[in-house]
Simulated assay, not measured.
Amino acid sequence: MTSPQTILKAWNLRARKELGQNFLREPTLAENIVNLAAIGCQDLVLEIGAGLGAMTIPAARRARRVIAVEKDRLLVPLLQAELLAQGLQHVQVMEANILALDLNRLAEQEGQAFVVIGNLPYNISSQVMVKLITERRSVRRAVLMFQKELADRLCAAPGNRTYGRLSVLLQYCAEMKVLREIKAEMFYPKPKVGSTVLQIDFKARIEPQVSDEALMIRVVQAAFGQRRKTLRNALAGGLLPLGGDGAAAVLEAAAIDPQRRAETLSVADFVRLTDAVGRYLVRPDRQA
């Protein structure tokens, strides 16, 4: 693999900061990450942010088929040329914004669920994770690179200052494992912080299971939206149609102290709270 600097210079291109582009510099590292993803010859791989093909090429040598999604239209012909030079014809390079793709529909068209890989741009990492959570029936496994601070947030336990909305939503439906840490020096351009490779396995069965996942997303967002406030005040803040009395009622129904704050609640607490909110919102005697 030629260095990112050399490839970009040859094509008269540059890394685009506005797209959060930081390319892997070391080919053996890209190969190692693909190895950690345990891609097999029958797998369908979806790569988010294929870039210069550092992981696309080794993934394609293992997988049945690869769909490489790249938003930067200037990189698409470069990536296609690299794949052609390697004789890899079972890779579809898709110029698209991953956030705009219907993953469930795409997986249905392909006839199987994806193994998702990628070096996620920091500016959309959180949005990508919410998308994978909500469309997870099309994802068998994900092995993704995150900037370290976000990876720490995803894995954080209740009571930790980094525990937040994404921690709850991901831990509700998935098991996570840290596969390796990557120093900032391994990227071009060099980012301010290092990265972490996480393996995310979505659960076949969730216990306890919430009655309305879309509502849970709203409840968690409301609770952490004003995380310095007590839960009663945060839930009454307007993101949910509760008001002060409603917030107090759902917290009592869920057996949660209204003076607690969002970061102290476990995933199971949020499941109970969401179910209590759902029951409250359909009460015929509830004041609008």
Results as ranks from 00 to 15, higher is better:
residue 135 E to Q: 13
residue 73 R to H: 09
residue 46 L to M: 04
residue 253 A to W: 12
residue 111 G to C: 07
residue 73 R to L: 04
residue 163 Y to F: 03
residue 197 V to A: 00
residue 49 G to N: 08
residue 207 E to S: 09
residue 246 G to P: 08
residue 196 T to P: 04
residue 111 G to P: 08
residue 262 A to Y: 07
residue 146 F to K: 08
residue 23 F to Q: 08
residue 48 I to D: 00
residue 215 L to M: 14
residue 98 I to N: 15
residue 62 R to N: 06
residue 76 V to T: 05
residue 114 F to M: 03
residue 274 T to K: 08
residue 197 V to H: 01
residue 104 N to K: 11
residue 111 G to T: 08
residue 227 R to Y: 06
residue 288 A to I: 11
residue 153 R to F: 01
residue 258 P to I: 08
residue 268 A to S: 09
residue 235 L to W: 10
residue 115 V to I: 12
residue 130 V to H: 01
residue 9 K to G: 05
residue 248 A to M: 10
residue 67 I to H: 11
residue 34 V to H: 06
residue 202 F to A: 00
residue 193 V to T: 04
residue 164 G to Q: 01
residue 16 R to H: 08
residue 115 V to H: 10
residue 60 A to K: 12
residue 8 L to T: 02
residue 237 G to I: 02
residue 266 S to D: 04
residue 227 R to W: 10
residue 28 T to Y: 06
residue 43 D to A: 11
residue 97 N to D: 15
residue 163 Y to I: 02
residue 217 I to G: 09
residue 165 R to Q: 01
residue 105 R to Y: 09
residue 78 L to G: 05
residue 237 G to T: 02
residue 9 K to C: 02
residue 223 A to L: 11
residue 141 R to L: 13
residue 217 I to K: 15
residue 241 P to L: 09
residue 1 M to A: 13
residue 276 A to I: 13
residue 275 D to I: 09
residue 23 F to P: 04
residue 260 R to N: 06
residue 284 P to K: 14
residue 203 K to D: 01
residue 239 L to A: 09
residue 58 P to M: 12
residue 171 Q to E: 03
residue 93 V to T: 06
residue 252 E to P: 03
residue 172 Y to F: 06
residue 63 A to W: 03
residue 147 Q to I: 12
residue 246 G to T: 10
residue 11 W to F: 09
residue 141 R to A: 11
residue 249 A to Y: 11
residue 284 P to L: 11
residue 265 L to H: 04
residue 56 T to V: 05
residue 274 T to R: 09
residue 146 F to L: 05
residue 153 R to M: 01
